[in-house]
């Protein structure tokens, strides 16, 4: 299920895995691993930003600048994870690997933004970061 979901998602953007002889490694391991890690890491960074830095600890990281740094950090991790997955599973590196990393980084931007919208209301200091919408406390 999860395997099919993530291979479907990534192959939608990337097309069939290349080199083709590693198709099953991508579909059964690399895509689901990367997808799950993408979800978990993005969620963790959002929670870290809104609930740890700006609620539990009340650091001064509540400005959009700080949110943006976290967004970029998440994208960098999202770019690194696919490459690590490909190398860690003994799959031949291909230009496909880097396209995959790029697509994963773009997806991480979207996810980080969506998680931010969903969770920022619970933050004490940063509920208006990156913008006030849709809340109006």
């Amino acid at each position: 299920m999860i395997q099919n979901f993530f291979s479907g998602l990534y192959e939608l953007f990337l097309g069939r895995p290349m080199p083709a002889n590693f198709t099953q490694d991508y579909r059964e391991v690399i895509f689901p691993n990367t997808g799950l890690l993408l979800l978990v890491i993005s969620l963790a960074l959002v929670v870290l930003y809104y609930y740890v830095f700006n609620r539990v600890m009340s650091t001064g990281f509540y400005k959009p600048k700080h949110w943006f740094i976290m967004l970029i950090l998440n994208a960098v991790i999202a770019f690194a994870v696919p490459i690590m997955q490909v190398n860690g599973n003994g799959v031949e590196t291909h230009s496909y690997t880097y396209t995959f990393a790029f697509v994963n980084a773009v997806l991480s931007l979207v996810l980080f933004f969506v998680f931010s919208l969903l969770l920022k209301k619970g933050s004490v200091q940063a509920w208006t970061t990156p913008m006030r919408w849709p809340h109006s406390r």
């Binding site: 963790a44 960074l45 870290l48």
Partner: peptide, 16 residues
Amino acid sequence: RTAGTLVLWLMIVLAG
């Protein structure tokens, strides 16, 4: 503040 940065890095490392 420093502890927070530490936690941040720890989480990244753990996640990675």
